[in-house]
């Protein structure tokens, strides 16, 4: 059985793993579960993960996607790691504000600013 095609583009820069989404819409629950597993594996492999998730290509996301992000955030906190979110468009940033998750996550306007914010 072949592994499903990755929903992520992943690269590393200055000890930080940068993750971007392949899909413009993060709505399908099967895809969200796969994304959660893929990012979870990255976090599990690193003893002190520094992770930047860029939403540069994302037009829509659902509360299930927010739930996956919360689970990832908890995993990273549990390992004394750091998570930054960046490149979130105005419509999606409003979703973070309505849910008050802008208080839970460290959100930076751009990936460049997010990279500079890691301790």
């Amino acid at each position: 059985m072949t592994a499903p095609e990755s929903r992520l583009r992943i690269r590393k820069q200055d000890q930080v793993t940068i993750v971007e989404f392949v899909d413009r819409n993060i709505l399908d629950e099967g895809n969200i579960a796969q994304i959660g597993e893929e990012i979870g594996a990255i976090v599990n492999e690193d003893p002190s993960p520094k992770l930047l998730i860029s939403f540069a290509n994302v037009d829509h996301l659902s509360s299930a996607a927010l739930g996956a992000l919360i689970t990832i955030n908890s995993k990273i906190k549990g390992k004394d790691g750091q998570l930054r979110l960046a490149d979130i468009n105005d419509q999606i940033i409003e979703v973070f504000r309505i849910t008050r998750l802008d208080r839970l996550f460290q959100i930076q306007p751009t990936a460049r600013e997010a990279l500079a914010s890691f301790a």
Binding site: S63, L66, G67, A68, S74, I98, T99, R100, R103, L104
Partner: peptide, 21 residues
């Protein structure tokens, strides 16, 4: 209420909030 501080880390329960918003 998923927006309360004590519930912010709960991974579910935001669907109805978003529909209403």
């Amino acid at each position: 209420d998923p927006t309360l501080d004590e519930n912010l880390e709960c991974p579910s329960g935001r669907g109805l909030l978003l529909m209403r918003a």
